[in-house]
Nucleic acid binder design. Structure first.
Lengths: 345, 345
DNA sequence: TCCTCCTACGTCAACGTTGACGTAACCGAG
DNA sequence: CTCGGTTACGTCAACGTTGACGTAGGAGGA
């Protein structure tokens, strides 16, 4: 069997020859354009079928005036992360609806890699890109945007103007989580966050501060731990926090993997029923744990749908002012966030 | 700001004009081909940079003799499923290494949709496709394959010849799981499986039968439940099984979501420490549950890497006989699979 | 000195498709 | 019967790029 098949793909010319018409007429039939009589249409269709003809979209988009490739780029941090993949899926569904396919890539939160992928995408002349911006400066994104590429940022807003974005209620929901803990009597609430370069981390931290302030609590700086990228760093930080002379009675973990790391530590010390925990971002089976993990759940499909809507509107020529859409997240109470402080001091 | 930027992309012609050379020379410089003097190279590079020139890969691949698009298609069941997305990520990493991007789509185990996506991919002239075949007949896949498109199937083998595939040790690992349960004294081991049309389900069921036979146990047909697509159906089935007059003392759940459904039921009835459970396919946090869930863990990155290796070899013209690569899975003992039968009868 | 070979370019056409435009045949109205 | 309009095609060139091939000029050998 020929894996690298040598057969030339049939072209419009082949179909035209078989149907005894011009290639232009074949083009009309294939694209359902008027100007072809019924019997010619039938003849062309039959010829195309018998040759196994498939239109070549790359040639077509090269020649077409709108220059559309019917392809968009999606550049997320890590496609194997449940958050990212759920987002991708939501975008994909909306894209399919428009007959558009998705070129997907993982930037690993690395600006260089993100830039390279962006170049690869633009070399393929995608109609637009949906990007989860890597932390730090966004020069490459801005440059691409200024070249005219329709662009929507998700999860994190642009640091430059003129570009749509979709984010969640990071600050408000974080504040709500902290207020929930405070209302139970917690006075020592720790913050464990991801990289400080990430906008979401900053926003969630701000929400934490607002929550403390609103509850009349004072910030204990030693209870704030940031730059915890990955569950392992989170574990270390959680251990250190719990080993303090005056340890926190509640933890607010501001990211997925940070929550997991903190959970591991609590379980290892058998403190999961003593120390309250609220995490940002839901994860599968959070309800099956003992206790169930209270989380701020983002509306991931909602984020993806909105991002897709925006990018397709822009591709279709919508020139209204840039939008910053905010999709509300919700506090899901499952137990771990409803633990009262054990021994008030 | 112009979201739908009207600026025409600079072309080789523009660069050539500015550098006062022919487009062919620009082509040589851009592609690092010999036949351009050092100062011309510098002039062209400068012109390209100042115009912000970006090569148009679609035009290039149209004209090139090898006709490569440097893009492959990936068609999985559901990109938001952790198994699928981990697989995608592994393929993507290998692809990036070759300067290749990935067009990704979810077929939802629907043959029609899979066929449509396949057509979309081939219209974009992808260099090859990696497919998780939808259940049932694979006519569309076979047809595409016979047109000469390099193709590798993952997770499920082709029902037609001449095509590479990569699968895991479904049967052997299932047998091992059942033998593990039998060795603890379990005689009533239930099987809960996904759609019977799926090859993996069939293989895992066969492994279950082999395990029973090898342990000298007789099959009780009422303990076999299949076609459980999704956690909800699995819940119903598990409930019914546990309500039998002579309920199983151990469950072998042959798929991800089926395991989750069964777990929910066990927990709801507070039997998670009484009834043994082994699931096929690992999932995040399986170790954090009480008890930890014993699973057959597939080597997902290994599967993805192998699939990518095969597809790129074929794209590069490897015409050796088709391969069926098998990546070993491993039994991960965490507790739920090590529960002995409570009251032997 | 003349011829050959090589280097560094340029010219031209073609990849598969479609926009712009041309034209022959036909139709209905005046 | 003529004229304007419409329908159903066809012709041609161009999208951005590269393969095939041509050529001027210089280097080098006999």
């Amino acid at each position: 069997m020929d894996q690298a098949g040598e057969r030339r793909e049939p072209t419009m010319r082949d179909v035209a020859a078989l149907a005894k018409v011009s290639t232009k007429t074949v083009s009309r039939v294939i694209n359902d354009l008027p100007g072809a009589g019924p019997e010619v249409v039938e003849r062309v269709r039959a010829a195309a079928r018998s040759l196994g003809y498939r239109p070549n979209l790359t040639a077509s988009s090269l020649r077409r005036s709108d220059r559309r490739s019917a392809t968009i780029g999606v550049l997320f941090e890590d496609l194997s992360n449940p958050f990212d993949s759920a987002l991708l899926r939501a975008v994909e569904d909306r894209a399919r609806h428009n007959g558009v396919l998705v070129l997907a890539g993982s930037s690993e939160d690395d600006r260089t890699l993100q830039g390279e992928l962006l170049v690869s995408l633009s070399a393929r002349r995608v109609d637009g890109v949906v990007v989860m911006a890597a932390g730090g400066h966004q020069d490459a994104l801005q440059q691409e945007r200024e070249r005219g590429t329709p662009m929507v940022l998700v999860d994190r807003p642009p640091t430059f103007g003129g570009t749509d974005c979709v984010t969640t209620t990071n600050r408000e929901s974080s504040r709500e989580a902290v207020l929930q803990l405070a209302s139970l009597g917690h006075r020592d609430i720790a913050f464990l966050g991801d990289r400080r370069t990430l906008w979401t981390s900053q926003e969630r931290y701000t929400g934490y501060l607002e929550g403390l302030a609103q509850a009349g609590l004072t910030l204990r700086e030693e209870l704030v731990r940031t730059d915890l990228h990955g569950a392992d760093l989170a574990e270390t930080a959680a251990t250190e926090l719990l080993d303090l002379d005056r340890p926190p009675s509640a933890l607010f973990t501001a990211q997925n993997l940070v929550t997991v790391g903190a959970m591991r530590v609590l379980r290892a010390r058998d403190q999961q029923h003593l120390i309250a925990l609220i995490g940002f971002d839901d994860f599968p089976l959070a309800d099956m744990l003992e206790p169930g993990i209270t989380v701020v759940r983002q509306d991931v499909p909602g984020l993806g749908r909105k991002a897709a809507e925006l990018i397709f509107a822009r591709i279709d020529g919508d020139t209204s002012p840039p939008v910053h859409a905010v999709v509300p997240a919700a506090l899901v109470r499952r137990g771990s966030g409803e633990i009262a402080p054990s021994a008030p001091r």
